[in-house]
Simulated assay, not measured.
Amino acid sequence: MSDANKSHWPKWVRDDKTVVSCTEKVKVMTENFDELKQIAQDALEDGLLMEVSEAQMREALHALVDSLINPYPNNDSN
């Protein structure tokens, strides 16, 4: 991915608003979000090529994110 296409993700923060500064954690988050963005882009483009409504594709992608489950219930970030 070229630098022009790279996303600039936010500074990651904990629930108490302190910044996650561990280089390895930030690297993993960046890699994960770069991968997610590319997969979502590919899915959007595939849908559009198959003549699916762009609005419906975006709604479906938003719904997918909204359906994610926090497996750590003691974390009150929801």
Rank of each mutant, 00 (worst) to 15 (best):
N70T: 04
A4L: 10
A43C: 10
T30P: 02
P71L: 09
W12R: 00
V28M: 06
V26C: 12
K17C: 07
E54H: 13
K27W: 01
D46L: 12
K6D: 07
P73G: 02
M57P: 07
K25M: 11
C22V: 09
P73Q: 13
P71C: 03
N78Q: 09
L36S: 04
Y72D: 08
L44Y: 01
N75V: 08
D76N: 14
D3I: 08
R58N: 11
V13N: 03
E35N: 10
G47K: 13
V52C: 05
E59D: 07
M29G: 09
A55P: 02
I39M: 08
N5A: 13
V52G: 02
M57L: 15
L48C: 06
N5M: 06
L36C: 07
E51S: 10
L61E: 05
E54Q: 14
E31R: 10
L44R: 03
P73F: 12
N70W: 09
V28R: 12
Q38N: 11
Y72N: 11
V20Q: 04
V28E: 04
N32E: 13
M1H: 06
E59F: 03
A55N: 14
L49M: 07
L49T: 09
K37A: 01
A4I: 02
N78A: 04
H62Y: 07
L48T: 06
F33I: 02
R14N: 11
D3V: 10
H8P: 00
V19W: 00
K25T: 06
L36Y: 14
M29Y: 07
L68M: 06
N75G: 06
P10L: 05
E45D: 11
I69Q: 08
E31N: 15
A40R: 00
N5P: 00
K6W: 02
D66V: 01
R58C: 07
P73S: 07
V65N: 02
Q38Y: 09
W9A: 03
L49N: 10
S21Y: 03
R58F: 05
E54K: 15
V26K: 05
E51T: 12
D76I: 04
E31V: 10
L61V: 00
